[in-house]
């Protein structure tokens, strides 16, 4: 795990060396802050539920933008050859890159804690659902990061990686919102597959092992698929 940790440090620092981190974090904070506070005072309720309910959609295009370069850039510049010929396994590389992307999501979310602090000054905020919401947001972010990582491993073109990752994330976000188009027999299955459905449960403060298992399963399946793609390239 030492090598995965080294790759994590390199990748995590890499976000902040280029302007991409600052642009992505700014866009995320402006969008989420704008949509959250534009309706917050209308409802007059001291809660952050509407902030969390927006996250699946926002993350669907923000996170693939963060992860699109992880493998694509390396394939394009050829640095992947240098990386893989050092004494590291492809698993070290995948875990290092994935954890760096997930940590970046945490850093991106960190400033939004100030929303909760601000609300607690003007109202009686229940921190339980807020903590659950952040736990869910981290799980959702990690799942989308694993999807973005997988998309990035498929191509050397970052734009294609972004569009592929975003499409995957949007399908998972919206699948449980389009159930009325679908036959009754598959409703439960498709609803269970929806990231939005599971995230809503957690963001209400309901910690259900099925939801946690769902997000962890997405991470596992996507990282495993990434490993298969990487092995196939050899």
């Amino acid at each position: 795990m030492h090598k995965a940790a080294t790759i994590f440090r390199k990748e995590f620092r890499g976000y902040f060396v280029s302007p991409i981190a600052y642009i992505v974090i700014s866009v995320f904070l402006i969008l989420s802050g704008w949509f959250f506070f534009s309706t917050f005072f209308l409802f007059g309720q001291a809660e952050m539920r509407s902030f969390f309910s927006l996250l699946p959609v926002t993350f669907s295009f923000i996170i693939p933008a963060v992860t699109m370069r992880l493998f694509s850039e390396e394939f394009n510049t050829g640095s992947y050859e240098l990386m893989l010929t050092m004494p590291v396994s492809s698993l070290d590389i995948i875990i290092g890159k994935f954890t760096a992307a997930a940590a970046f999501v945490a850093v991106m979310l960190a400033p939004t804690v100030s929303y909760g602090i601000f609300i607690s000054f003007i109202g009686d905020l229940d921190w339980g659902p807020v903590a659950g919401g952040y736990a869910g947001a981290l799980l959702l972010g990690a799942s989308f990061a694993s999807i973005g990582l997988f998309a990035s491993s498929l191509t050397r073109n970052q734009i294609i990686a972004f569009i592929t990752g975003m499409s995957f994330c949007f399908v998972l976000t919206l699948i449980d919102k389009m159930l009325f188009f679908l036959p009754e027999g598959v409703l439960n299955v498709l609803q269970y597959m929806g990231a939005g459905f599971h995230f809503q449960n957690i963001s209400k403060g309901i910690i259900d092992s099925r939801d946690i298992l769902y997000f962890l399963s997405i991470c596992f399946v996507m990282l495993y698929a990434t490993n298969l793609v990487i092995q196939e390239k050899k």
Partner: peptide, 14 residues
């Protein structure tokens, strides 16, 4: 083994 691939594809931002 220490390996130098053709045209040394290093990490450009580092």
């Amino acid at each position: 083994i220490g390996y130098l691939p053709e045209s040394a594809p290093l990490y450009p931002d580092m």
